[in-house]
Computed example of a mutant assay.
Amino acid sequence: MGQSKLLASIVVGATVGAALSMFDRTTREKTIATTKKMKEAISFYASNREELQVLVEEKVLATKVLCESVTENVNTIVEKVDEFKELPSTIEGMINDTKSAFSLPNKE
């Protein structure tokens, strides 16, 4: 019973908020322009389904390329982090080698 009141309240609140926002002239004009553009796009793609299919395929391909690029970047970052993890032991070895080189007794 509580869910139905919540959903109804959300719908009423959204409707009242949208109605109040239409009092602003700029918002009203922008909403009308956006609605006209959407109507034109829907009409165009309804009569040109091939164009819609091409558009969707292009977007899917672009998304696939982006995902591959992100994956490559993440792999590169992981490799660099691994290199940085090894860096302290490398530096420690160099320091120990330097210490031993300078601390060897001189036999003359």
Rank of each mutant, 00 (worst) to 15 (best):
R49Q: 15
G13C: 06
L52A: 03
F102V: 02
E68K: 10
T27N: 12
V65R: 15
I77D: 04
K30S: 05
L52Y: 01
K5E: 13
K64Y: 13
K107H: 12
A62E: 09
M1K: 13
T98Q: 10
G13W: 08
T31I: 06
E79V: 04
R49L: 10
G13T: 04
L6M: 15
L104H: 10
L61E: 15
E86T: 05
A62D: 03
F102N: 02
A8E: 14
I42E: 06
E58H: 09
A62Y: 05
S4L: 14
I95T: 00
V56P: 00
D82T: 04
E92Y: 03
K37Y: 06
F102R: 05
M38S: 01
S9Q: 08
V54T: 14
S47N: 06
E68I: 01
E108L: 12
P88T: 01
E72I: 02
N73S: 15
F84L: 14
A62K: 14
V16Q: 09
L6G: 15
S100A: 05
Q3K: 12
E108R: 12
D97C: 03
T76H: 11
A33T: 02
I77R: 10
R49H: 13
F84P: 05
S9L: 10
L20E: 10
G17T: 02
N73L: 14
I91S: 01
I91C: 03
A14M: 15
R49Y: 08
M94W: 14
F102W: 06
I91L: 07
K39R: 11
S4R: 15
N73A: 15
T27V: 09
N96T: 03
P105H: 11
A18S: 14
Q3P: 01
Y45I: 01
N75T: 02
K39D: 04
N48H: 06
E92R: 09
T34K: 11
V70W: 07
V11M: 08
E72M: 07
V60Y: 11
V70S: 06
V74G: 02
K85G: 01
T15N: 05
E57Q: 13
K85P: 00
A14V: 07
M38F: 01
N48F: 00
V11N: 12
T71I: 06
K64N: 10
E92I: 03
F44K: 06
G17E: 00
A8F: 12
L87N: 03
V74T: 03
V74W: 04
T63K: 14
I77T: 01
S103A: 00
S43Y: 07
K36R: 06
A41K: 13
A46D: 10
R28H: 07
T26V: 03
A41D: 05
T71Y: 07
S4G: 03
S47F: 07
P105A: 09
A19I: 08
S43G: 05
T27G: 04
L66I: 09
N106V: 12
S69T: 10
C67I: 12
T34A: 12
E58D: 09
I77N: 04
L7G: 02
A101N: 06
M22L: 09
L20Y: 08
S103W: 01
P88K: 05
V11S: 11
E79P: 02
S9E: 09
K37S: 07
K107Q: 14
L104Q: 15
A8N: 15
K37R: 14
V16H: 07
K39Q: 08
T15I: 05
V81Q: 08
E79G: 01
T71D: 08
E92T: 06
S4C: 07
E68Q: 09
F102I: 01
R25K: 08
T26L: 08
E79W: 03
